[in-house]
Write a protein that binds this DNA or RNA. Structure first.
Lengths: 173, 173
DNA sequence: GCGAGATGATTAACATGTTAATTGTCTCGC
DNA sequence: GCGAGACAATTAACATGTTAATCATCTCGC
């Protein structure tokens, strides 16, 4: 470290060097940061409860998605739980090892895998769901039912707005 | 796999087993999912541009935070860029190796590290910032300036609402 | 001034995000 | 029916998220 030095009267100039260069919006108010902080504020409420049952947020998402249906293909599950295929692959391996889910291969297409929640998985959900719902209710109460609904609508609209904006892909990649 | 079998007439029952058990809100409409999808929709716009310059979203956050000031302590930077200390530690190590930032130790307290952006880092920002701003402008235009401001306000309010809700910490941990 | 506890930063260990490469199966056209 | 793509899923490789542990320094009471 330290092959940096300001020659001559550069002390003050070096001090001002990085100040206010490359003008950009106020960083902390960018949309990605707002969304990130808001989501973190919400998840911070849930994580301790999940952690007590040795579940991560993603594992819980998968169990919830599975609890609503009988069986589902891996690709479709990835879409539902909003996970990338590689992440899902690893998590399913783990959940299966823990006996919380069951897997089999589709009979008509050996490439496709079918996933379903196990009885053990359902029992775990029955234990975790109440406190999870209670936390969600508390959040809703604090923020306001109407406001929450309005926020969800605006978030959905944002998604929809951006749906068309495909990758900029500057013609020539 | 496959030590599961339904005895007797369990075929159909097993089929209905996981269907609609453990009643919970519609999964895809939960607030965490809405926030996650919205943020992903936004970041999807930025990632390709950042990637062309070998920058991750987090590295870019750090550079942006540094560009606004002369120097900053590691802990404060973690707060500003909304990164956990361990992540920041790794990223700073990498950014320093790439010559994009500079580090030194605080003179009054040898535990504290001071980070600042380098000239090379500033030059990189000058290259990346325009397309980044253009993308942000496009998003703003699509979604609407007023709506965007309103959304930011609601996200801020959500954060504020949850600020008090400390960890449930069921007395007895 | 010394030693116990507090504090800043890093490291460790494991889970997930992200893109690319791989593997196994399928679908077609021929 | 076979071989070239298409497709589903996994694996690989690396970066980050997350919690716990470690290391170095500092602070303060005594």
């Amino acid at each position: 470290m330290a092959q940096k030095k300001s020659s001559g009267s550069g002390k003050e100039k070096a001090n001002a060097k990085a100040t206010r260069r490359v003008p950009m919006r106020d960083f902390s108010r960018s949309l990605p940061m707002s969304l990130l902080r808001a989501r973190e504020a919400v998840m911070r409420q849930f994580r301790p409860s999940l952690r007590r049952h040795d579940l991560t947020e993603q594992q819980w998402r998968i169990l919830r998605a599975l609890a609503a249906i009988d069986a589902i293909e891996v690709t479709e599950l990835a879409h539902t739980a909003f996970l990338l295929a590689p992440s899902l692959s690893r998590i399913l391996r783990d959940l299966e090892a823990r006996g919380l889910i069951e897997r089999k291969t589709a009979e008509t297409d050996l490439r496709r895998g079918l996933v379903s929640i196990s009885d053990k998985g359902l029992r775990l959900m029955e234990v975790v769901a109440p406190s999870s719902e209670a936390i969600y209710a508390a959040i809703t109460r604090r923020y306001g039912v109407r406001k929450l609904a309005a926020l969800q609508d605006m978030l959905g609209a944002l998604e929809a707005s951006l749906a068309g904006m495909g990758q900029p892909e500057e013609a020539g990649e």
